[in-house]
Design a protein around this nucleic acid. Structure first.
Lengths: 309, 309
DNA sequence: GATCTGCGATAGGATTTGCGAATGGCTTCG
DNA sequence: CGAAGCCATTCGCAAATCCTATCGCAGATC
C-alpha cells in the first residue's frame, strides 16, 4: 500500500512543479521527497514525473494519480479531524435511547439546545417502554447513552443524571387535597387514574403500590402520561406521576408525598463515558427536569427527601 | 499526519470487532495493530475504541473517524490503480494537439479506435493552424503529444509517426494529367487552387513553392483542405495536397511528383514518450494514413522516394 | 566560451518507525 | 479452579525514513 507520505509528496510536487520546492513546502529535505517519489514509482511501476533540468512535470500517469492522492490526503486529515471533534464534543454522532416518558420533559429541550450549539453533532434517539429492550440496545452496542429511571442491574456502568419527584394530583376539593402532603398509605382505596399497559409508567406504578401494600381503585387508564394529571384534576380521582408530567396551570391540587418520593434518572453507558457522551450527560444534569413555576409553588413546605418504599 | 496503516487498522478493527481478528485480517500480529491504534489515538487525542474483555467496540469518536478512514484507503488504492492503468496504457488521460489538417485523416480514426478499445483513456484534442502556437502547448506542458508535419526545432524530442505523399490533382484533360508524373517545375505558371490563410497548408505550400522558385497562378483559395482536389478536378486548375486530402472516387487525375514528394508527420513530446503516449503514437504509426484504393491505383509507377526541395 | 546557478540523483550514516515473539493481566467459560 | 480468548506492554531486530554531503547536468550569465 502506498504510504500517505508518498502521496503528499506527489501532490506537493504537482503543485510546485519542483521537488526542491515541494520539499520546502513539506518541511522536509529534497532527497527525502525524491526518495518518496521513487518509491511511489516503484509501486506503480510507472514514471509519474518527468525529470527536467528546470524542475519536474507530471506524466499522464502522474496526473491520473494526483487527483485521488489529494482525495486520500484530505480524507485522512478529515478522519482525524472528525475524531478530534468528537473527542472535544464539538462533532461526531451520539446515539441515544430513553424510556418513552422521558423524551418530552428531559431529552427534547437538551437535544434542541445541542442542535443549535453543536450543529456538527448528529444526535439520534430511540425510545421504548420496555426496560429489557432498552438495556439490550446497550448490550448490542447500538446506543451510546441510555436514559432510564434507576436502578438497573449492577453489571452496567451508570451515571446519575438527575432526580425527579413523584407527586400526587387531585381535584381541588378532593379529600387528599386538604392535606399539606400525603403518604403512600393514603392511596389505599382512592380512585386512581392509571396508565395503559403500553405506557412504561404502568408497570412501575403497579410495582410501587404493591410493594407499599396499598390498593387503590383504578377508574381508568390512559396511554398519554401528561393526560393523567389532567384527568385527575378534572374530577376523576387522583393521579401519581413524575412531576414532569404535570403541565403548568393545572386546575387542581398538587401534593408531595411524605416522605418525599424521588425517582432517580440515570444514564447507562457501555463502559466509561467517552467525552462526547459525558458532556451530554452533564448537559442533562445541569438542566435537570424543568418544573413550571406555579407547579413548584404548590409544593412549598415539606423538606426531608427520601424514598417511600 | 496519520499513517494509512493506522487507518487500515482502525477500519479492520471496526469491521471485525476485535484487534486480534483485525490483525489476522491484515496479515499482521496483534501487538502491531494495537500499537497502530494507540498511535492513532495519540494523534487524535481521543479514545477511538473501547477495550472490553470480549473484543473492542468503537467509541463515537471512532465511528466518526472510520468513515473517512475508509475513504482515504480507497482513494489511495485508487491513486496507484489509476497510475498503473496509465502506465500500461489502459487508462488515464492523454492530451493531444495537432495541426488542423491532420484531424480527419489521421487522428479521428485512431481516437475512435481507442475510445472503443480503451474506454478508460480520456483523450482530449486541441487543434491549431499556427505552428508556433502548437509548439507553445508543448512548452507550457498543456499537451502530451503534438502531431505536426516535420521538421520542427531541434530542441524538441520528436518521434517519426508516418509519412504521407504530396500529390497533384488536376482535371482529366489537363496538360499535366497526360504525364505519368510531374516535377515541381511543371507548376510554374499553372492555375492553382490554393488555400485560405486560415488553413495551415496555405503557408506551407507558399514556402514550398518559393523555395523551388516556381510561381503558379492562384485562381482561388479554399479553407477546406479536402475541397481543393475536388475544385481542381472540376476544372479550375490543379491542386497540391497531401494525399489524405484526396477522397475516393475523385473525378480527375492524381499524379505523384518526381522525385516523390514526401511529408513527414512527427509526434512532438515533452521529454521521452511515456508508455501511454508511446502506445498512442504506435497506433498512429501502424495505421498510417488511410489512402483509398482507387486513389492509390492512380499512383502506380514511379519508385524512388525523395524530397523535392 | 568559461563560469555560475539551480535542480535532481546518489551515497552513507544516524534516527525513527514498524514489526514480531514473549509475557502478563484480565475476563469468561467449562 | 483451570483453560481459553483478548488486549497491553516489553524487548530486540530489521526496515524504512530522513538528513548531510556530494555529484552530474543543463541553462543562464557575463
Amino acid at each position: 500500500m502506498a504510504s500517505l507520505r508518498a502521496l503528499e509528496c506527489l501532490v506537493a510536487v504537482a503543485d510546485s512543479g519542483s521537488i526542491t520546492q515541494a520539499a520546502r513546502m513539506l518541511h522536509s529535505s529534497q532527497p527525502a521527497v525524491s526518495h518518496q517519489l521513487a518509491a511511489l514509482e516503484r509501486e506503480t511501476r510507472t514514471a509519474l514525473i518527468r525529470r527536467e533540468p528546470r524542475g519536474v512535470k507530471l506524466t499522464p500517469a502522474g496526473r491520473a494519480a494526483v487527483t485521488d492522492a489529494r482525495r486520500a490526503i484530505e480524507a485522512a486529515a478529515s478522519a482525524v479531524r472528525l475524531a478530534r471533534a468528537a473527542g472535544d464534543a464539538t462533532g461526531g454522532s451520539l446515539r441515544l435511547a430513553c424510556a418513552q416518558s422521558l423524551t418530552v420533559s428531559m431529552l427534547a429541550p437538551v437535544i434542541r439546545d445541542w442542535h443549535r450549539r453543536y450543529p456538527q453533532v448528529a444526535i439520534s434517539l430511540r425510545e421504548s417502554a420496555v426496560p429489557g429492550e432498552l438495556l439490550g440496545l446497550i448490550d448490542s452496542d447500538e446506543v451510546d447513552i441510555l436514559l432510564v429511571p434507576g436502578p438497573v442491574s449492577e453489571r452496567y456502568t451508570t451515571t446519575p443524571v438527575t432526580e425527579e419527584e413523584i407527586v400526587l394530583t387531585a381535584p381541588g376539593n378532593h379529600r387528599l387535597a386538604q392535606l399539606p402532603s400525603v403518604t403512600l398509605n393514603d392511596l389505599d382505596g382512592v380512585q386512581l387514574v392509571h396508565f395503559a399497559a403500553d405506557n412504561g409508567l404502568s408497570g412501575w406504578l403497579d410495582r410501587s403500590l404493591t410493594r407499599a401494600g396499598v390498593r387503590p381503585e383504578t377508574v381508568m387508564r390512559t396511554s398519554v402520561t401528561a393526560a393523567a394529571p389532567q384527568l385527575a384534576a378534572a374530577g376523576l380521582g387522583v393521579a401519581v406521576t413524575p412531576i414532569s408530567a404535570v403541565s403548568a396551570g393545572l386546575p387542581g391540587a398538587i401534593r408531595s408525598f411524605s416522605p418525599r418520593w424521588i425517582r432517580q434518572l440515570i444514564a447507562v453507558s457501555p463502559g466509561a463515558l467517552d467525552p462526547l457522551a459525558a458532556r451530554f450527560v452533564t448537559s442533562l444534569s445541569t438542566r435537570g427536569v424543568r418544573v413550571p413555576r406555579d407547579v413548584k409553588a404548590q409544593l412549598s413546605d415539606s423538606d426531608a427527601p427520601g424514598s417511600p418504599k
